[in-house]
C-alpha cells in the first residue's frame, strides 16, 4: 500500500538504496539475526558501513511513512554531523508534513541540529519554544520539559 506510491518511491530513492528481506525465507535468517529483527514491517536506515542510524517498526500510510523516513534520513545526517543536510530535511518535514506524527521530532531535532552546528546560537531554545506551542501534547514536548522547570 505504501511503497508503490510515487512520492514514497521518490522519498526513499533520493536518499537511500532500498534493500528488502522476507522474514519467512530461511535464506534471510542470517541477515535477520544480524539486525536483531523481531517484528514487521521493520525499517532501518544504515550507513554504507552497515551502522544503524535510525529504525522503526510498524505499518505507516504514505504521508506518515514519508515524514518518518525523512526524519530517519535527517537523523542519519545529524549523527554524521552533516548539519546542513539534516536541517534541510527537518525543515522539509515541518513544511510538508506539519501534522504528521513525526513532525514534533523534526522540530525537536531541528533545534538540536542548529545548536550542534553553532553552540552560540539560541536556536535550540527557540525551536523548543516552537515545539511547546505547536505540539504541546507530543512526547518531544516532554523531552524538553526540563527547560520548563522553575
Amino acid at each position: 500500500m505504501t511503497y508503490p506510491q510515487p512520492p514514497v518511491v521518490e522519498t526513499i530513492t533520493s536518499h537511500a538504496i532500498p534493500v528488502q528481506f522476507d522474514n519467512s525465507k530461511t535464506e534471510n535468517a542470517g541477515v535477520l539475526a544480524q539486525l536483531h529483527h523481531i517484528w514487521t514491517p521493520d525499517v532501518r536506515v544504515l550507513d554504507e558501513g552497515g551502522t544503524e542510524l535510525y529504525r522503526w517498526d510498524g505499518f505507516l500510510p504514505p504521508p506518515e511513512f514519508m515524514a518518518r523516513s525523512l526524519c530517519g534520513f535527517a537523523q542519519a545526517h545529524l549523527r554524521r554531523r552533516e548539519f546542513e543536510a539534516a536541517e534541510a530535511i527537518y525543515v522539509d518535514v515541518l513544511t510538508r508534513f506539519s501534522t504528521a506524527y513525526a513532525a514534533p521530532e523534526a522540530l525537536y531535532y531541528l533545534g538540536v541540529t542548529r545548536y550542534r552546528r553553532d553552540p552560540n546560537s539560541d536556536e535550540l531554545l527557540a525551536q523548543w519554544a516552537n515545539l511547546r506551542s505547536r505540539y504541546p501534547m507530543s512526547e518531544y514536548r516532554v523531552k524538553q520539559s526540563f527547560k520548563e522547570l522553575p
Binding site: 511503497y3 508503490p4 514514497v8 518511491v9 526513499i12 530513492t13 536518499h15 537511500a16 538504496i17 532500498p18 534493500v19 528488502q20 528481506f21 522476507d22 522474514n23 519467512s24 541477515v31 535477520l32 539486525l35 529483527h37 514487521t40 514491517p41 521493520d42 525499517v43 532501518r44 536506515v45 544504515l46 550507513d47 554504507e48 558501513g49 552497515g50 542510524l53 523516513s69 530517519g72 534520513f73 542519519a76
Partner: peptide, 30 residues
Amino acid sequence: MIEWMGDLEAARKRARDESKFVLVDIFNPG
C-alpha cells in the same frame, strides 16, 4: 516502483558509490 535489492552487502556498496544511505525493509508476506 521501488527496485528493491536483496543483498545487504551489495546495497552498502551502492550506497557508498552513490553517497546515499541504505534503507532496509523487513517484511512478512502473510
